[in-house]
Design a protein around this nucleic acid. Structure first.
Lengths: 212, 212
DNA sequence: CTTTATTCTCTACAACTATAGAAAATAAAC
DNA sequence: GTTTATTTTCTATAGTTGTAGAGAATAAAG
C-alpha cells in the first residue's frame, strides 16, 4: 500500500492539504497514454519513458501510480477488456436470441478505428499470455464467459425456432468465438486506414448457416 | 555477399580446402534452435546469445549465417510457413471437395504438440507484423493463398452436391480462415500439455453446416 | 511570507541488448 | 610437421531498458 486509499481523496481535517491528483483518475490517464502508444508504435514502443512522455510527464513520474511496468500493462489490458464487456452489456441489453447474438458479435468485431486499435492491443496481450500463466488465465476466463453468453443466446434462438441446425450449440459457440478472434488478427495486421474487412457480411452469413 | 554461394559447397580445385559446414544446413540448424527457444521461453527469451547457446555455439557464431537478428527471425518465420504449406500439399494431394477441405483444415489446426508449438511461434510473428509492413504483407499473402485454396475446394464440393448452403463461398472461406486463426490462439495460450481443444469436432460441425 | 505534504523532474545505475571485430581454434592439403 | 582458409570464441562497445531515489517544484494553509 504505497499511497493511502486511492478512492477517498481530499479528506484531511487538520493541516496543509496540497493533494491535487486523484490517483485512480491518473492511473486511467496513464493507461490511456499506454493504449495510444501501443496502437501507434506497437508493443516495442511502449517503454516507460515513451508512455510518460505521451502522458505529458517525465521519466519517473509513473512510479507512484504503478510500481512496476508489468503492473501498468496488466491494468491497461484489463481496462480494455472491461470496456469491451461494458459495451457488450450496453448493446445486448433487452435483446435475446439471434438478435442478441448478432449485437454481441457486432460489438466484438473490429468494425471501426477504435476497435481495430483494440485489436492491435490484444495481440501483444496474447503474446505475453503465451508465457505468462496469469495473463493466459485472464484470457481463458474471458473466453469462457463469452462462450457461455453465446450458448445462452443460441438456446433462446432454438426455443424461438430461429436456429434449427443439428450441430451442437457448444461447437457453434466455439466456432463463433474463434471466428471473432481471427477477425481481430485480420484487422490488426491490415495497413492502417483500412476499416472494412467484410466482417459484418461474414457474420450475417454465419448466422444464416445456423437458421437452416 | 559475405559467404560465397551457399548452395555449391566443397568446390575448390587448387589448394587447402578446410571448409566443413554447409551454410544452408547451418542456417536451418539455427532456425530450429530459435524455434525451440520461442516455443519454450517465448519471444522474449529469443536473444542472440540464447539462440546461439541452444544451437551449441558462442555469442558471435551466428553472425556469418545471419547478419542481423531480424534476418534470422524473418527466415525462421518463413520456414515455419513453408513447412506448414508443404504438409498441406502432402495431405491434400489427390483429394478434392469437402474431403480436401477437411484434410487442409486438419493440417492447419493445432492438433498435436508440434503444431501447438507452431501456434506459439505465429503469435509473436503477428505481433511483429502489427508494426512491420513487410511481415504483415507475408501474412496477407499467405492468407490470400489459403482463401483461394478453400474457395477452390468449396467450388468442387458444390459441383458434387456436397455443399448446398446459399451462403456465398467467399464468406465461407473467410469464416473458416478466421476460425483456423482463432484456434491457433486458443491452443497457444493453453497451459502446456493440453492438446485436445475439440477442434476436430468444431471443424466437423462447421462442415456439417455447409452441407445443409 | 513561511510551513508542509505532495507531486514531479532529473540524474544515476545496473542489467541486458545487438552487433563488431580481433584473435584463437580448427582441419584439410601438402 | 607447415600452410591456408574457414570457423568459432571471446572481448568490447554503444545503446536501451526498468527502476531507484535525491532534490526541486508545487500549491494549499497559516
Amino acid at each position: 500500500m504505497a499511497h493511502k486509499s486511492p478512492s477517498q481523496k481530499n479528506i484531511r481535517e487538520w493541516a496543509a492539504v496540497p493533494k491535487i491528483v486523484d490517483h485512480d483518475e491518473r492511473r486511467l490517464e496513464l493507461v490511456d497514454a499506454t493504449w495510444r502508444i501501443i496502437a501507434r508504435q506497437g508493443m516495442e514502443g511502449a517503454t516507460m519513458r515513451e508512455i510518460a512522455l505521451e502522458a505529458g510527464f517525465a521519466n519517473g513520474a509513473l512510479k507512484p501510480y504503478f510500481p512496476t511496468k508489468d503492473t501498468l500493462l496488466e491494468f491497461a489490458f484489463g481496462h480494455v477488456f472491461n470496456r469491451t464487456n461494458r459495451r457488450i452489456a450496453d448493446v445486448t441489453g433487452g435483446r435475446t436470441g439471434l438478435d442478441a447474438l448478432q449485437a454481441f458479435c457486432l460489438e466484438v468485431l473490429p468494425l471501426d478505428e477504435e476497435r481495430i486499435n483494440e485489436a492491435r492491443i490484444v495481440i501483444p496481450f496474447w503474446q505475453k499470455a503465451v508465457t505468462d500463466p496469469g495473463k493466459a488465465e485472464i484470457h481463458r476466463q474471458s473466453m469462457e464467459e463469452w462462450a457461455d453468453t453465446i450458448r445462452r443466446y443460441l438456446a433462446e434462438a432454438r426455443n424461438s425456432g430461429d436456429v434449427r441446425t443439428a450441430v451442437d450449440d457448444s461447437l457453434l459457440a466455439s466456432q463463433l468465438l474463434n471466428m471473432l478472434l481471427g477477425a481481430q488478427i485480420e484487422a490488426a495486421l491490415a495497413p492502417p486506414g483500412r476499416t472494412d474487412f467484410g466482417h459484418e457480411a461474414q457474420l450475417e452469413g454465419y448466422l444464416e448457416l445456423l437458421r437452416n
